[in-house]
């Protein structure tokens, strides 16, 4: 069964169309990632899945059922903006959230998660005494207690240090191994590539990409060369049949024009400088994102 089915959904706020005729399916047990620029409609879509917003048109089904404004203990939701009662102690607050979702006492589950995320000694402290990273972990626990079947995480790694991000990432993957379906939004393309079984890019309210990472990359083919050249960028400029060069510091990515022969590019480069690395590859998700939503997309439209 699909965890979420969205069919031809449109949501407007006044004159602004936040989500425009969006359809997608989130398979049960998968990690489904939303990417897209700020204001593209990711959060609005997530809010419609949780029934915080109602679609103006179309239909949202969660585990086959239309929610119609109801709240379900099956859905755990972590909003982008962190919302914790600053003056409450950590454990009572988490128990309140958990009971609100499930309708039953969740003390054991809360204690288990506090232990797992190494927050036990902070259980009796007020939320306002926690660091930002600890607050994020507490908020994450609020989303996963007691045991959601569908976990919706809006920017779960935003503002987290690498250690805290790793902890949360491990917890998400553990939940997924337990059969929980995870929908997350992120601006970190590395996270999307590494964690998500399916990636959906929303741009200006419309779905522009949807599928596995490899299926998305396949749409673009092996049009990218990654090189490490002595002298760096100064020897790469002016290469024939190369549309764009992205300087990543130690390495550079070259995007080839359609019909370009990579062997010819290799020969030209070797004539200019010494190469320590040369690989032909599919475009990264970052590159695909920029192609769709970056300045060149605007230039292409103008052209």
């Amino acid at each position: 069964m699909d965890a979420v089915q969205i069919a031809s959904v449109t949501k407007t706020f006044g004159a602004v169309t936040a989500v425009d005729d969006l359809s997608l399916v989130v398979p049960e047990g998968s990690v489904y990632g939303f990417i897209g620029p700020n204001g593209s409609g990711k959060t609005t879509t997530m809010r419609m899945i949780t029934s915080i917003f109602y679609p103006d048109r179309g239909e949202v089904r969660v585990f086959g059922k239309q929610m119609l404004g109801a709240r379900s203990e099956l859905i755990g939701y972590l909003p982008e903006e962190r919302g914790l009662y600053r003056k409450m102690a950590v454990q009572p607050m988490l128990e309140f959230y958990g009971e609100l979702r499930s309708g039953r006492k969740v003390t054991a589950e809360v204690e288990g998660w506090l232990k797992k995320l190494e927050l036990t000694k902070w259980a009796t402290q007020k939320v306002q005494t926690l660091s930002k990273g600890m607050s994020q972990k507490v908020q994450f626990i609020a989303a996963v207690v007691p045991a959601p079947k569908l976990l919706i995480l809006d920017e779960p790694f935003s503002g987290l240090d690498p250690v805290s991000a790793d902890v949360i990432q491990s917890a998400i993957l553990e939940l997924r191994r337990g059969g929980v379906t995870v929908i997350l939004s992120t601006h970190d393309m590395q996270v999307a590539e590494n964690m998500c079984d399916y990636i959906c890019m929303i741009f200006r309210g419309k779905k522009v990409l949807d599928g596995t990472l490899s299926s998305i990359q396949d749409q673009y083919g092996n049009d990218t060369i990654r090189v490490a050249a002595e002298g760096g960028m100064q020897f790469l400029e002016g290469l024939p049949d190369v549309e764009r060069i992205r300087d990543l510091g130690q390495v550079q990515e070259l995007r080839m024009a359609r019909g370009c022969d990579p062997q010819q590019v290799l020969r030209t480069l070797m004539a200019r400088t010494r190469l320590t690395s040369f690989s032909i590859m599919k475009p990264s998700l970052h590159d695909i994102f920029v192609r769709i939503a970056g300045p060149e997309a605007g230039e292409a439209q103008v052209a």
Binding site: R71, G76, Y77, G83, Y85, R86, L100, A143
Partner: peptide, 16 residues
């Protein structure tokens, strides 16, 4: 203002 309501709205309806 403290963005608490979105968290709560994930758990309870606006009427509740």
């Amino acid at each position: 203002a403290q963005r608490l309501v979105e968290m709560l709205l994930g758990l309870a309806t606006p009427f509740e």
